[in-house]
Write a protein that binds this DNA or RNA. Structure first.
Lengths: 330, 330
DNA sequence: AAATAATGTGTAATCGATTCCATAACGTGT
DNA sequence: ACACGTTATGGAATCGATTACACATTATTT
């Protein structure tokens, strides 16, 4: 591998001068510059970012910790992050936590050892030891999707989105509305969305049969199961189902189809996520677009502001959302 | 940031000894080791992989160049790659080419400047200047999805998969079979699959009306458009449609639904990809599973073999595939 | 013409690790 | 008592860049 020293020797100048033309800084004569550039081209020399980083203490790499790589949300978010970061010469170092807090914590250490300039945490469950880890880390951290105390975060407006969905059902005349959620340790998806559902119901003075409130685990199968239990356990079946994710909603739809219950005539369904799936299932699923890609770019922007010390304080950015009304809704 | 020198000073030993306990190599007394580990714990010292890399010439980072981040195929593949690489202590540095060969080439340079230990290219169109770039790069390169001359590649068996799909239609009694492809500059998806279609038709002595052969661009809309043109232009409509990707197939299905043509009674449809979508559209789409995640891990394994110099020669690995028969097929 | 500013270049220290080599203490077989 | 192998430790070079500083040389100002 050819180094700056080789270039210096071959072009008959010092290392310093080569560095100067590389970064075009300081004074360099046209003649020297031309010669150096020639040699660089001839040799195919590529400066080592590694060595540069060691000296300058900037790696131009951002670590991104994902709860899971292969999900639609993750890939949209990463797409958004990359779009913004690449404009500023940053690269993404990927870290997959695979829904395991221990791994998440381990990744913070690993990313730190690689001297990334910042860490973006696409968050799910926020435990205390995670928060402690983040505090101990000495690079900027920005969270996406969950409100992490003391950390700048880009947040989806889970409460209002869920409130709007429930309210939409109510406005359309539904009185018995079922809910399929996830565990409340997931504060954003589990707790906030559920709270909003109950608040909206209460505000409209609507009763909630406990059997109408079910729980799943982020996949289609569990949505199907939740729907079946709801149908079996409730004295009077709901006329509308709010599932906190599209996959749960689609699972619910599967169950309804199998039971011969017509959507939307006998049962309206809504989800959250605006997944590709939601658009092409039959009937097409009404949902909420969280603009994941935009959330990604906003997170990246916030990160860059932190790195450049434009933003000193921890900031909380709330994303907007958009209801998408399709055929699953009466 | 605390360094190895700080640890050395604080524990009253030399840098060398600290390094020894870090890598547990060479001779270190129990006493010294204990002291050093204490100090490391107290200070929260994390060794700089950067400095280490500079010295050892190994970064333990693999660059992954993707044609597009936010696609189901990409995220599955990356998931598989990460699964294998993380077992060996490697991290992934992401690079998004965004379907642009210039960017692809640029990324090779950038990844090289970061001194990655290897580059995995998830490939689409292979142009000559790309091949030249790969030759100039001095780290192992492994390609996935396209056969790159002189480069170890993990390949999908596009020809046989497409041949099998067409043959399946034929076996079920279809005589008029339509084809929706993509541009042939994409050798694997465009050229190979089309060739297989024609070969299978010819082998069965079936005629192909030129209007039955249409072209799209990887998204659902273009599949819809291709289907409409086919319907409009052909004297006699086909009874089966083979689209080279699931999205194109789903687009075709959309078009058929709008035209009131029943699937599968009046028209059978098949795609390739085993996307999530294929499972949940109505009727469910028959397709071919390419086992993308497995392809990813295989690619990573091959990369590691190259890095460790277990495999010197360029190797070509052909993946298997599986037909998934669902309701879209009569 | 002298003083001052601008331009051009190189020397050497530095970033944070690894690693070769030298040195020393200690046990042990002869 | 001597030689030798084992254990333990540190000094110093090294990886490939940046950068503070010193020193010429040339141009500009007064």
């Amino acid at each position: 591998m050819v180094t700056i020293n080789d270039i210096a020797k071959l072009s008959g100048v010092s290392r310093t001068t080569v560095s100067r033309v590389l970064n075009n800084s300081g004074y360099v004569s046209e003649k020297a510059k031309k010669r150096v550039l020639e040699v660089i081209k001839e040799t195919g020399y590529v400066p080592s970012e590694q060595a540069k980083s060691l000296r300058t203490k900037k790696s131009k790499v951002i670590g991104v910790i994902l709860p899971k790589i292969s999900t639609e949300t993750s890939s949209r978010v990463v797409d958004g992050i990359d779009r913004e970061l690449s404009n500023h010469g940053y690269h993404i170092l990927l870290a997959n936590a695979n829904l395991d807090t221990d791994k998440e914590i381990e990744h913070f250490k690993l990313l730190q050892s690689r001297r990334v300039d910042g860490i973006i945490l696409v968050a799910t469950n926020i435990e205390d030891r995670l928060i402690q880890t983040i505090k101990d880390v000495n690079v900027p951290v920005v969270a996406l999707g969950q409100d992490v105390p003391g950390v700048s975060s880009v947040l989806y407006d889970d409460y209002h989105a869920a409130f709007d969905v429930t309210s939409l059902f109510i406005k359309r005349g539904h009185k018995r509305i079922g809910f399929i959620g996830v565990d409340e340790t997931d504060r954003a998806v589990g707790y906030e969305r559920k709270k909003a559902y109950f608040d909206a119901m209460e505000k409209a003075r609507l009763n909630v049969d406990p059997a109408w409130v079910q729980k799943g685990v982020f996949d289609i199968e569990s949505g199907e199961k939740a729907m079946l239990t709801m149908l079996a356990d409730s004295k009077e079946a709901p006329t509308a189902i709010f599932a906190v994710t599209d996959r749960l909603a689609i699972g619910a739809m599967q169950a309804l189809k199998k039971k011969g219950i017509k959507i939307p005539e006998e049962m309206s369904v809504m989800g959250i996520g605006a997944s590709d799936l939601s658009k092409y299932v039959t009937p097409s699923l009404s949902t909420v677009d969280y603009y994941n890609e935009k959330a990604g770019t906003e997170t990246a922007k916030l990160m860059i502001e932190h790195i450049k010390n434009i933003t000193e304080m921890t900031r909380k950015l709330s994303m907007s959302y958009g209801l998408i009304i399709r055929d699953s809704l009466l």
